[in-house]
Deep mutational scan, measured.
Amino acid sequence: CKPMSYEEKRQLSLDINKLPGEKLGRVVHIIQSREPSLKNSNPDEIEIDFETLKPSTLRELERYVTS
């Protein structure tokens, strides 16, 4: 899986911020299912740190927000 450039992460962040509330739950689910360290975090307060997410997680999020 190809790592994301800074610009791609920035765009992904903007795209996620534009999602309606009902789609954000899926974003949280994708992150929690792929990032063991965030599995028990509160979905309402999850802070997405794009620098610490795996490339595969970032690509999955990218696919979701652009679908």
Rank of each mutant, 00 (worst) to 15 (best):
E45F: 08
C1W: 09
G25W: 08
C1V: 08
E45G: 13
R63C: 08
G21Q: 15
V27F: 03
Q11H: 03
E7A: 10
P43F: 12
S56N: 12
I31A: 05
I48C: 06
K23S: 14
R10Q: 08
L38G: 07
E22D: 13
L53I: 02
L38E: 06
V65L: 07
E62R: 15
E8H: 02
Y6T: 14
N42W: 08
S41G: 11
K9A: 01
L61D: 08
R26L: 04
P36Q: 07
S13N: 08
E22G: 08
P3Q: 05
K23P: 06
S13A: 11
P3G: 06
S5N: 08
D15H: 10
R63T: 13
C1A: 10
L58C: 10
L58E: 05
G21P: 15
I31M: 05
Y6R: 14
I16M: 09
S41N: 11
D44P: 08
E47R: 10
G21W: 08
V65C: 08
K9H: 04
L58K: 03
N40H: 12
L38N: 01
E51C: 03
S56P: 04
H29K: 12
S33F: 02
F50T: 11
I46F: 13
I16C: 02
L12G: 06
P55V: 05
Y6A: 15
E47F: 04
P20V: 10
D49C: 09
E8D: 05
L38Q: 07
I30K: 00
R26P: 09
V65D: 06
E62C: 07
N42H: 14
L14I: 14
I16T: 04
L19V: 03
E8Q: 05
E62W: 02
V28R: 15
T52S: 12
Y6E: 13
S41W: 15
L14F: 11
P36M: 06
L61H: 07
L12W: 02
K23H: 15
E35K: 00
K18A: 12
E62S: 13
I31W: 01
S41P: 08
K54A: 12
I30G: 03
E7Q: 09
L24G: 04
K39D: 06
P55D: 14
L61G: 06
R59S: 03
S5I: 01
P3A: 04
T57Q: 00
S37D: 13
K54R: 11
K23F: 15
Q32C: 07
P43R: 09
R26M: 10
Y64A: 06
L19Y: 03
V28K: 15
L19S: 03
R59M: 07
E8I: 05
R26E: 15
F50A: 08
V28G: 07
V27S: 00
I46T: 12
E60C: 09
D15C: 13
D15E: 14
G25R: 15
K2I: 01
E60D: 09
N40S: 10
T52V: 14
G21Y: 14
T57W: 01
P20K: 11
P3W: 00
E22R: 02
G25M: 15
P20M: 02
T66C: 11
I31F: 05
D15M: 15
V65I: 09
R59L: 07
L38F: 15
L12M: 02
G25Y: 08
P20G: 13
G25V: 11
I48S: 06
E60A: 14
E7N: 05
P3H: 03
P55H: 08
I48W: 07
E51G: 05
E45D: 13
E51T: 08
I48G: 01
V27N: 02
E22A: 07
L24R: 15
E47P: 07
G21S: 14
E47T: 11
H29Q: 15
E35R: 01
N17F: 03
K2V: 10
T66Y: 15
E22S: 10
T52E: 13
K23W: 13
Q11G: 03
L12R: 00
L58D: 06
D49P: 07
K39R: 14
S5F: 00
Q32I: 05
N42S: 11
R34Y: 11
C1G: 12
L24E: 01
S56V: 04
E60K: 08
V28C: 07
E51V: 02
S67D: 13
I31Y: 01
S13M: 06
L61R: 07
L61N: 06
Q32T: 06
F50K: 02
D49F: 02
P3M: 05
K9F: 07
F50E: 10
K39Y: 09
R10F: 02
P55Q: 06
N42G: 09
P20F: 09
V28A: 09
M4I: 04
E62V: 04
P3V: 03
S56L: 02
P43S: 12
E47Y: 03
S67W: 09
E51P: 03
T52L: 12
H29S: 13
R63G: 11
K54S: 14
L53Q: 03
R26W: 09
K23L: 15
S33G: 07
K9T: 04
C1E: 14
I16P: 03
E60R: 02
L19C: 04
R63H: 09
R10T: 04
V65S: 06
Y64S: 06
P3E: 14
E7D: 13
G21E: 14
P36T: 05
E35M: 00
S67Y: 10
D44L: 07
L38I: 13
L14R: 12
L58W: 05
R10L: 07
K2P: 00
H29A: 13
Y64I: 04
N40A: 12
F50D: 08
S37K: 14
Q11E: 11
V65R: 06
E35F: 00
K39E: 08
E22H: 06
T57P: 02
L12P: 00
E35H: 02
Q32E: 08
N42Q: 11
E60M: 04
K23A: 15
L61S: 07
P43T: 11
V28E: 08
S33E: 14
R10D: 01
K39Q: 14
E47H: 09
P3I: 04
K18E: 01
E62I: 01
T57G: 03
T52M: 13
E35S: 03
V27D: 08
L24C: 02
V28F: 14
S41T: 12
D49N: 13
D49S: 07
K54M: 14
K39G: 09
R26I: 04
R59Q: 01
Y6H: 14
N17H: 07
E47W: 05
R34N: 12
T57I: 05
E60N: 07
P36R: 08
D44A: 08
K2N: 13
V27Y: 00
E22M: 09
P20R: 12
G21T: 15
Y6D: 15
L53T: 11
S13Q: 14
L14K: 12
N17C: 06
T57Y: 01
K54G: 08
E51I: 06
D15G: 11
S5M: 00
C1R: 10
I31P: 01
F50R: 05
Y64N: 10
T52I: 06
S13D: 00
S67F: 06
S5V: 00
T57M: 00
L14M: 14
L58N: 08
R34C: 12
S5L: 01
S33M: 11
I48D: 01
R34L: 14
L58P: 06
E7W: 04
E22I: 04
P20W: 04
R63F: 09
T66M: 10
K39L: 09
G21C: 09
S41I: 12
I48R: 06
N17A: 09
T52F: 04
R26C: 03
T52A: 12
I48Y: 04
V65K: 06
S67P: 12
E60W: 00
I46Y: 12
S67M: 07
R34G: 09
M4Y: 01
S41E: 14
T66N: 14
N17W: 01
T66K: 15
V27E: 01
S67K: 09
D49E: 11
Y6I: 13
P20I: 00
R63D: 10
P36Y: 01
R34H: 14
R10M: 07
L58A: 05
R34T: 02
Q11N: 10
I31C: 05
I46N: 14
K18L: 08
S33L: 07
P55N: 10
E8C: 00
D44G: 10
V28T: 11
L61Q: 09
D15T: 13
T52G: 11
L12D: 12
P36E: 13
L53D: 05
S37V: 09
L12N: 00
E22W: 08
P43D: 10
L24V: 08
P36G: 11
S33P: 05
R34E: 12
T57V: 01
N42P: 13
E51Y: 03
L38A: 05
F50G: 04
P55L: 08
K9Q: 03
R10A: 07
N17D: 12
H29R: 14
L19G: 01
P55E: 14
V28H: 14
E45V: 06
M4G: 02
L14S: 12
L53H: 04
V28I: 15
R34V: 06
E7F: 02
K18N: 13
N17Y: 07
L53R: 04
Y64K: 02
T52D: 05
V65M: 10
F50I: 11
L53E: 05
H29F: 05
E8T: 00
L12C: 03
K54D: 05
L61I: 15
N40P: 10
K18C: 05
V27H: 03
P36W: 01
S41R: 14
S33R: 06
K18D: 05
I46A: 07
H29I: 00
R34F: 11
N40V: 12
